[in-house]
């Protein structure tokens, strides 16, 4: 067995997967270094789940290759499975087993020693000692997530793949969940976590943004913001919705996003954006100022792009006519 820890816990290149002739993941590369928390972002259907499944050996890539913890993701999937924890997007533990039975089952499948001790510890950490006999199906969403996480780390994996672990979980539980993730990462665990939440993305060491099966950008949040080359203006005032509609019609304006009582207006061409916005600067009741684009602006912009791509694919000429 390899003992030298590879620099990149995940190192895959050219991953491609099609379903029914449609490329869902297209030549996707990703490297995740040891001990880091990587956020995996992208609109629904962009291929995040499919990518995670390929990394942990649940799907066979049509093309591409790579290693996970130094093991080939296709040839040595069995070795990969023993060393990683994968938390599925949908709760996938056994709802008709009790909390304790689920944990014991997992311990057996991984062939763990000191089963009772480990399960007891996990239950204590979960604060579920009193409810250990309750069926998993009776738990609320937040508790299910916690149980799933506890079960995924029971065998002390070196890598955690989490697929939208906090979808539908209340903010407090979400916060605790992330504290736990950071505590685990501090102990050397590597994490790749897909999410839709901006605040969660900002809690990651780095993010990977995917759209239509392709890598759009990756890096630290700062890098990504800088790399996006976005200029943003903030406008404050009354009755902003009609204005938003007007602004959206401007060619240089890529996105208009409401944030409370102001609008973030962003574009990729700084000069063109300024020129386009000039006529609005003197409107009554509006106050304009240029701002650093937030991560959310970037994210919204990528989302908008993705939608444009989609439209373009459906009726090719519309873009030129506009």
């Amino acid at each position: 067995m390899m003992t030298a820890a590879p620099d990149n816990v995940i190192d895959v290149r050219g991953l491609t997967k099609s379903f029914g002739g449609r490329k869902v993941v297209d030549s996707f590369d990703v490297q995740v270094p040891r001990g880091r928390i990587y956020g995996f972002l992208g609109p629904n259907g962009s291929g995040k789940t499919t990518t995670l499944r390929m990394i942990c050996g649940l799907l066979t890539p049509d093309a591409g290759e790579g290693t996970c913890l130094g093991f080939d993701i296709v040839e040595e999937a069995a070795e990969v499975k023993r060393r990683i924890g994968y938390m599925t997007q949908k709760f996938s533990f056994w709802e008709d087993l009790s909390i304790r039975e689920n944990l014991e089952f997992v311990a057996d499948l991984y062939g763990l020693d000191r089963r009772k001790e480990r399960v007891d510890t996990a239950l204590q950490n979960l604060n579920l000692v009193d409810r250990q006999k309750q069926l998993a199906g009776q738990l609320s969403g937040g508790w299910k997530q916690r149980l799933a996480l506890a079960a995924c780390i029971l065998h002390e994996p070196e890598l955690l793949l989490l697929d939208e672990p906090t979808a539908g979980v209340d903010p407090k539980a979400r916060r605790e969940f992330w504290d736990e993730i950071h505590r685990l990462a501090a102990e050397g665990l590597t994490v790749l976590v897909s999410t839709h939440y901006m605040d969660e993305a900002e809690r990651c060491h780095a993010i990977i943004y995917m759209s239509y099966g392709r890598l759009v950008t990756q890096g630290t949040v700062k890098d990504v913001i800088r790399g996006a080359g976005l200029s943003t203006w903030v406008v404050r005032g009354q009755n902003l919705m009609p204005l938003a509609r007007e602004l959206e019609a401007e060619k240089a304006v890529k996105t208009v996003a409401p944030f409370g009582d102001n609008l973030h207006v962003s574009g990729t061409d700084k000069q063109a954006l300024e020129a386009a916005l000039k006529p609005y600067f003197n409107r009554e009741g509006l106050s304009w100022h240029e701002a650093e684009p937030s991560f959310e602006d970037i994210f919204i912009r990528y989302m908008a792009d993705a939608q444009d791509n989609f439209k373009g694919a459906e009726n090719g000429n519309e873009g030129d006519a506009a």
Partner: peptide, 13 residues
């Protein structure tokens, strides 16, 4: 159907 197969397959069995 319940999605637990994905979990089972992700474990070394």
């Amino acid at each position: 159907e319940r999605g637990t197969m994905e979990n089972l397959l992700a474990m070394p069995v």
